[in-house]
Design a protein around this nucleic acid. Structure first.
Lengths: 171, 171
DNA sequence: GCACTAATTGCAACTAGTCGCAATACGAGA
DNA sequence: TCTCGTATTGCGACTAGTTGCAATTAGTGC
């Protein structure tokens, strides 16, 4: 495959302009149609599943949940719809430490992730924490970093044995 | 994929601090045996292939090259041997933007990678460039970052210039 | 309500990689 | 040189995701 494959770097949702979540879901059919795309039962099902999801999900989990609602769900349809929804800015995908795909639903702010290789927990990484790095890439390389795709692997405080709390663990 | 093979662009390997590569390879059999592991023909083949490799390779490419030398090569054996060699520190693996595994042979310094989503090129990211981020993770979260596993995705200078889609997309 | 056409789906085959298990064979010790 | 324990291999099945293609169908125009 080529790096420019089906997964384009869509323009991310503007962070400040916090979306009305329910509104965002409701407008999907017309937003699709505006672009000559279609609103199908399969897409509606996935959107319903997504609307009940908070935080991160893997593609496999989404396929699973769709299949619970409709046993005839086909994985390739789910993954293709996920691509379309990502282009619409409703979800963002990134890769966990193991390289597996993960999706964020309606990311309110662009953020990256930190994963602990040992316990497998993950944390959101906000722009402030890596702002200097982003700026340095911009200046030194002219490189525009896609924060939502940033995955930082390593060992968390707990696993290093330093004691302390695993704040805001996601999983 | 059009641009396969090793792509090391931008920051070149540190010229002075070169290891004695042949020495590192030569000591593998005994290093394995020291740990109660074994030196097999399959492992020797993979090590030979690796010794002729510079920069980054995907697992698939390695399987391919081993198969060229020995058509009976089994993928799972290659991947398992890769794990063993990583434990020995002879290679490091990371994940490209598409989540696919990539291996570095004999990494001279711990480094991360920057990938351009559009042209697919990649660059090494040395510790100086992300030092502040590493330190901040350490202090604020007690999190020890594994730099060699860091993949920064985004758009490179050339693609931002050529694409002309405007810097307005940056958030 | 009907026809048309291009977007979408379902399917099957494929890529990349992992895992469990029985058979093989490395290499330490006799 | 032979024996033996166990690391490793080969294999087949499986997970996660992608792709090409023919059949289906959403949605526009009449």
């Amino acid at each position: 495959m080529s790096a420019s494959g089906s997964r384009r770097l869509g323009v991310p949702p503007t962070p400040g302009a916090a979306w009305d979540r329910s509104g965002a879901w409701a407008s999907i059919p017309e937003r699709l149609r505006e672009q000559g795309l279609r609103w199908t039962p399969q897409r509606r099902l996935l959107v319903e599943v997504l609307a009940q999801t908070d935080g991160h999900v893997t593609g496999g989990e989404l396929v699973e949940r769709c299949r619970e609602a409709d046993t005839t769900t086909i994985p390739s349809t789910v993954y293709r719809t996920l691509d379309v929804l990502e282009e619409l800015g409703l979800i963002r995908h990134c890769h966990g430490v193991d390289g597996r795909e993960e999706f964020h639903v309606l990311p309110e702010t662009e953020h990256g992730h930190a994963y602990c290789n040992e316990c497998g927990r993950s944390w959101d990484v906000e722009v402030e924490e890596v702002g200097a790095m982003l700026a340095s890439f911009q200046e030194r390389r002219g490189f525009e970093v896609d924060l939502s795709h940033l995955t930082v692997a390593g060992r968390c405080r707990d696993c290093r044995g330093a004691g302390g709390t695993g704040e805001a663990a996601v999983e």
